[in-house]
Amino acid sequence: MSSATRDAFQPAMLGPVQLRNRIIKAATFEGRTPDALVTDDLIEFHRRVAAGGAALTTVAYCAVAPEGRTDRHQIWMRADAVPGLQRLTDAVHAEGGAVSAQLGHAGPVANAASNRAPALAPSRQLSPISMRVTHAATETDIRRIIAAHAESARLAVRAGFDAVELHFGHNYLISAFLSPALNKRSDSYGGTLANRARLARQTAEAVRNEVGNEIAVLAKFNMDDGVRGGFGIEESRTVAQWLAEDGNLDALELTVGSSLRNPMYLFRGDVPLREFAAQFPQPQRLGIRLIGRKFLRTYPYRDAYLLDEAARFRADLDLPLILLGGIASRAAIDTAMAHGFDFVAMARALLYDPELINRMRADEISVSPCTHCNQCMPTIYQGTRCVLTTPAADPAHTA
Rank of each mutant, 00 (worst) to 15 (best):
E139D: 13
R330A: 09
H46M: 02
A112I: 01
E214D: 15
M131E: 15
M360D: 04
M223A: 02
T89P: 08
L120M: 08
A91V: 03
R297H: 06
R47T: 08
P354F: 14
G232H: 15
F45T: 02
A94M: 13
R385F: 11
P128C: 05
L266Y: 07
R22Q: 00
H397I: 12
L321P: 00
G326Q: 05
R47F: 11
I142P: 02
N115K: 06
A304E: 11
V82T: 04
T379Y: 07
I75G: 06
T134A: 05
N111R: 01
E44N: 08
V109R: 10
G84F: 13
A396S: 09
Y299T: 04
R20Y: 07
I145Q: 09
D394S: 13
R361V: 14
T138Y: 09
G226I: 02
V38C: 11
L254E: 06
T33L: 12
A310E: 04
P122Q: 03
G269M: 04
R293P: 04
K184E: 12
Q125T: 05
F177C: 02
P180G: 01
P180R: 01
I333Q: 04
L42R: 03
R143T: 15
N21R: 00
A91Q: 02
E67R: 08
S123G: 06
I327Y: 05
E253F: 10
L243P: 08
H149T: 09
S114C: 04
E44D: 10
